[in-house]
Write a protein that binds this DNA or RNA. Sequence first.
DNA 1: CCCACTCGGCTTGCATCCATTTTTCGGCGA
DNA 2: TCGCCGAAAAATGGATGCAAGCCGAGTGGG
Lengths: 252, 252
Amino acid sequence: MVGESETVSFSNVASEADSQIARTLLCVREMILKGEFSPGERLSEAPLASRVGVSRTPIRLALERLAHEGLLEPYPTGGFIVRKFTLNDVWDGIELRGLLEGAAARLAAERLADDSQLTTLRNAQLDMDAVGEPTSETFPAYLDLNDRFHAEVLRLAKSEMLKQALDRLLSLPLASRQALVSLQSRFPEASEIFVVGRDQHLRIIEAIARRQGGRAESIAREHAQITRRALEFVMSRADVLSSLPGGPLVQV
Amino acid sequence: MVGESETVSFSNVASEADSQIARTLLCVREMILKGEFSPGERLSEAPLASRVGVSRTPIRLALERLAHEGLLEPYPTGGFIVRKFTLNDVWDGIELRGLLEGAAARLAAERLADDSQLTTLRNAQLDMDAVGEPTSETFPAYLDLNDRFHAEVLRLAKSEMLKQALDRLLSLPLASRQALVSLQSRFPEASEIFVVGRDQHLRIIEAIARRQGGRAESIAREHAQITRRALEFVMSRADVLSSLPGGPLVQV
DNA sequence: CCCACTCGGCTTGCATCCATTTTTCGGCGA
DNA sequence: TCGCCGAAAAATGGATGCAAGCCGAGTGGG
């Protein structure tokens, strides 16, 4: 066994996983997103290994993956450092997500064979409506269902390339929809944003159903801007920002 | 030492590299793109290790990277298999590249501070003009300069997110500009395509210089379709297709 | 007093070794 | 002849040992 004494089960989540590398991946990613390392800091394998409780081999595989995810970047003489993000990166990421999700909505409209394929998408929206305006309790469920809605649109687009590009982009947390947690009932404008967002979902379904590809693209593209609005609300409050997943990585 | 007897230096290129993993990466990627493995085939580490002449450790890292590149995909019970590509994947990839390069051109126009930043882009085009219509001899230089042109547009876009998304997409060879080699003086229409492509480059520069973001986007988006036209020419000839890098991976 | 050189610790890269799981292949029975 | 079963072979996942390279501190010389 390795690290027999100081091994700590760092995270409550993923304390048990199917493989060491999966556990390491979740654990290290969570550490990075929580801001336990400062941007630019070099991540050495040995300390991580003793912290996670595995040997260096899974650590290295996990670091490799995180580098491809974009959370780390290779260091010239070897190893990896924590990547720095700027606010411009975040805004550009959201813009790019709008571009890709817009393309997905357009393709979904263009490639819809028959209306029965829309049922799962409609059901996803119905499930979201059942949750209603999210509270701090129902927020995880809301986010899950929201992701499911967009995953359904992406599925209808039937483009593996688009799916991969979006998947990779969404792995960067501040540009992803997860950043909506910043809305967590902190601001009076939040309610307004949820209403608008729900309406956009409904219009996207409608446009896809009517094969209005261009319209679906426009709405979906604008819909991504909701994340930007949500983030702009919290930008003034550094404490809230740094509590968001990935927030500590953003240079102010 | 490992694989002391049957170690063969597989490739003339990259017989010498800075690290074992870099060598392995180039070597295995070339093998895959050359079609030495059939799509869906499982890649085992040990045979690769003896073929490349390294131990299993760098092989694993290289396979991990190739999986993130999209050339391999993880197999449920472990290991990786060669990914299958369909023709639809190729067309969608080109479409997506047009979308992203269009966005890059638009951002370049919107974010151009002063005209002096355009000199490197103009020089890239001048260098391409110096080569002229490529022959089989000058084709590698032509492709390099073409890539440089688009890299310059991307640089002017000043979006790290966009750069990463495009980099990842371009690593898939058939959707990349490298697929233009199919035009290698085989078809009478090739000359026409080069003239049109050059004009599109000039119009992109012009639109960026005039801060016409929407126009730059439109032209760049359409410009990507040149790859599709080039590929469509060779689609009828299976022998030519399978000689292209990555061509053997496409299911007909 | 400052610069350069050297020595030591630390880190990564790589190879090898071990255990567990999967796959395959041959044989047996229906 | 087909299908099931079991054992051997081989695959991956993981751990560790070792050597080479980098980084920094300390020291000696100019």
